[in-house]
């Protein structure tokens, strides 16, 4: 169903290199509103590089990335209002508590009076409510990951770009994360996520892009790609 819609995000002929080494060569990648594109591949296959290019954090040597028909400009507040980005270098403010982080993001996105309620709902959803008053440096690595994901999910967004969101999470937390992402997709949010967890991928993504050495080696509906069985996972 999602394929029939006009793409919200469209990347065309993206090429990224470092010196003489080509890091990424993606002819085309599209995601419609309410769609979910999974990026899979072994470590170093180019998943994070593609996500950074889609987020406007990396200037491609060639090609374009359009969000709603306009080029992405990460430093513009308009882009930041529409797109939630979760990368592996995400960081917390050392002096704010878990709840304050999430509420700050919600308030900054103009949720105003509903910010507190929404913040509690997201913390509940991700199982982080009991650590609401904790500082980031007292959290475990998994809990810190959940806090950063809560800050991404608490705000309204047209597109979420997530780099291995299931990393460091236990099985229960992965399940809760999957539920939260399904709710976001149902609300019309598009998602592009690099992922190693086959269950999360098959339960959420409707399209998969398989990368190897920076090149697309397979692409299509999730079930078909998984059935072909040639996907390098990790």
């Amino acid at each position: 169903m999602a394929e029939r819609l006009e793409p919200l995000l469209r990347a065309t002929d993206l090429r990224v290199s470092a010196g003489d080494v080509q890091l990424l060569a993606v002819p085309s990648a599209t995601v419609p509103a309410g769609g979910c594109l999974g990026l899979v591949g072994v470590n170093g296959s180019g998943k994070s590089t593609l996500l950074k290019a889609l987020a406007g954090l990396l200037r491609p040597d060639a090609g374009s990335v359009l969000l709603g028909g306009r080029p992405v400009r990460e430093h513009e507040s308009g882009f930041r209002r529409q797109v939630g980005v979760f990368l592996d270098d995400a960081a917390c403010f050392p002096d704010l508590t878990v709840a304050e982080h999430v509420r700050m993001v919600a308030t900054a996105h103009g949720l105003g009076p509903t910010a507190a309620e929404r913040c509690e709902r997201v913390l509940d959803l991700l199982g982080l409510r009991h650590r609401a008053d904790a500082r980031p440096d007292t959290l475990s690595a998994g809990q810190r990951q959940l806090l950063l994901l809560a800050a991404v999910l608490v705000r309204p967004a047209r597109l979420l770009l997530l780099d291995e969101p299931e990393q460091r999470l236990d099985t229960g937390a992965r399940g809760r994360l999957a539920d939260a992402l399904r709710t976001a997709v149902a609300d019309g949010t598009a998602i592009v996520m690099a992922v190693h967890d086959r269950q999360l991928l098959s339960g959420l993504a409707d399209q998969v892009l398989v990368l190897d050495g920076g090149r697309v080696v397979d692409h299509g509906p999730t079930a078909e790609v998984l059935d072909r069985g040639a996907t390098p996972w990790n």
């Binding site: 430093h75 513009e76 507040s77 930041r80 209002r81 939630g84 980005v85 990368l87 270098d89 995400a90 960081a91 917390c92 403010f93 700050m104 993001v105 900054a108 996105h109 800050a151 991404v152 705000r155």
Partner: peptide
């Protein structure tokens, strides 16, 4: 990256 989730431009 600490301010990446805030919907304001870096200059602001």
């Amino acid at each position: 990256a600490r301010t990446a989730l805030l919907p304001f431009s870096p200059a602001r």
